[in-house]
């Protein structure tokens, strides 16, 4: 076993355990905290793969941004003694089916993917200059258009949030 495999095993175990805890915890803030661990471990996985940029973005956006936002909104709304009700069987079964379907799809993809036999040297890093150029290039594999489209989505989300917040005041 190499150290990379060891780290992979640790990250994978953290992701699996805390994912299960996230969905089974009945206290909402604990669930959010476990989600944070899942996201940080995913970031660690990216670091392991030397996708440094992706890992940092994962940490900034998901762990630092979205989880903080979730926790912040939970703080505003929830009470310490509060526990979520146990979900009814009617809700559990569809959830299991959906989760099972997703897992099956993933496993199928992994099994069918023709992995190359020799190990690609992991020492090369993805240069951030390449990422930066791709991100704002308007050529064939450029992401300028999707980037702008996403920002429109964000704008829409922001407008929606403002409207929701305004409505509640009345």
């Amino acid at each position: 076993m190499t150290t990379n495999q060891l780290m992979f095993a640790i990250f994978a175990a953290v992701i699996i355990i805390f994912s299960i805890l996230t969905v089974t915890s009945r206290r909402i803030l604990r669930a959010a905290t476990f989600l944070l661990f899942v996201l940080v471990a995913t970031g660690g996985m990216y670091f392991l793969l030397r996708f440094n940029f992706l890992a940092a973005i994962q940490l900034t956006l998901y762990a630092g941004g979205i989880v903080v936002l979730i926790i912040f909104s939970i703080l505003l709304t929830s009470h310490i003694g509060e526990k979520l009700e146990a979900p009814s069987v009617k809700k559990i079964i569809p959830a299991f089916i959906a989760a099972g379907f997703g897992a099956a799809l993933c496993i199928l993809t992994i099994v069918q993917h023709p992995f190359p036999q020799e190990v690609i040297s992991s020492s090369e890093r993805t240069d951030i200059r390449v990422i930066a150029k791709a991100l704002i290039s308007t050529e064939k594999f450029g992401y300028a258009l999707p980037f702008e489209v996403i920002s429109i989505l964000l704008l829409a989300a922001m407008v929606g949030a403002i409207i929701l917040a305004k409505k509640r005041k009345d």
Binding site: L36, N52, I57, G64, I71, L75, I80
Partner: peptide, 28 residues
């Protein structure tokens, strides 16, 4: 020595606030 050093520092130092938020909420 990351090639994204500054971005990494900004990313991980933003995690600390979670601890503060949790501390404030959980001490009731």
């Amino acid at each position: 020595d990351f090639d994204i050093g500054i971005l990494y520092v900004i990313a991980v130092s933003s995690l600390g606030v979670v601890g503060i938020l949790l501390a404030g909420w959980s001490s009731n």
